[in-house]
């Protein structure tokens, strides 16, 4: 799946979801999201600037983790999808 086919909401939510479960490195995210390096950097930058993820230095590497603010955003995303599927 090429990154050009993906929309911004998918990329943001995907990164938030991955970083929610555990602290992730940029390399891990790059592999899992299958994005270009420039695209993942841009996404991380955007999410950091909005205080939705935090940068942590652990074991000589930089890791990213979803903040409680990011959790709220993701929860809203889930609720939106959930509500939609509850409508009959």
């Amino acid at each position: 799946m090429s990154s050009s086919r993906r929309n911004r909401f998918e990329i943001w939510a995907e990164v938030l979801e991955f970083c929610l479960r555990a602290k992730r490195t940029q390399t891990w995210l790059l592999r899992e999201t299958r994005l270009k390096t420039s695209a993942i950097k841009e996404t991380l930058q955007f999410l950091l600037s909005r205080n939705l993820i935090e940068e942590l230095n652990e074991d000589n590497s930089t890791k990213y983790h979803t903040t409680s603010r990011g959790e709220e955003v993701l929860k809203r995303f889930y609720t939106l999808v959930n509500d939609y599927f509850d409508l009959k």
């Binding site: 939510a13 979801e17 889930y78």
Partner: peptide, 22 residues
């Protein structure tokens, strides 16, 4: 891979939506 997830059970929900969208 994670033994005790902090506050999330799955991390494939958004990728599933992404897959559907693609």
């Amino acid at each position: 891979e994670e033994k005790t997830p902090r506050n999330a059970l799955y991390d494939g929900i958004v990728p599933y939506i992404t897959n559907f969208y693609a």
